[in-house]
């Protein structure tokens, strides 16, 4: 029998598919899933994909992640699709959409920006597409970030 690397179907939870290859760990970071998290998480990277060449997939068991939360993923994986699973069946399927504004995920690269000083605010960015690339602009100082994954905190 041919040996295959597979991740079993999950009974209940959230499957994030069509993540740009190599970005799965960042997706988890954006969703706040780390060593202290209690959810069972499986992840595959660099899976062959018809549309994308290669892609990553993340499955989070026992948890329906909110749409607003999931849309933050669009920052680094604008083509990601979400499947919410219940009793092994897809309950809801949708594509992430880029939010207009994100708070607290990126840090401003401008060392002279007020968000990098000791103020009671979270960094806030307007996000938009520029020639198919996701670009973020600091709401406070106006600095533009073209490589957003470098500044995820």
């Amino acid at each position: 029998m041919e040996k295959k690397l597979v991740i079993s179907k999950i009974k209940e939870g959230t499957v994030i598919d069509h993540i740009n290859a190599g970005k799965a760990l960042l997706v988890l970071k954006i969703l706040g899933i780390g060593p202290e998290s209690r959810e069972r998480v499986s992840m595959v990277m660099n899976v062959p994909s018809g549309k994308m060449g290669k892609k990553d997939i993340v499955k989070v068991e026992g948890k329906f992640i909110g749409e607003e939360e999931l849309n933050k993923i669009a920052l680094i994986a604008p083509k990601a699709t979400i499947n919410l699973i219940k009793d092994y069946e897809v309950q809801k399927k949708f594509k992430v959409t880029l939010p207009e504004m994100i708070e607290g995920i990126l840090r401003c690269p401008n060392g002279n920006c007020i968000t990098n000083s000791r103020e009671p605010i979270a960094p806030k960015f307007r996000v938009f597409l520029e020639r198919d690339n996701v670009v973020a602009k600091c709401y406070y100082c106006g600095r533009k970030i073209k490589e957003v994954d470098r500044f995820i905190v």
Binding site: N110, C113, I114, E119, Y139, C141
Partner: peptide
């Protein structure tokens, strides 16, 4: 007037 960029936007908040 403040030396840090974005300070006025913060002040307004």
């Amino acid at each position: 007037r403040h030396p840090l960029e974005g300070s006025a936007r913060l002040a307004a908040e």
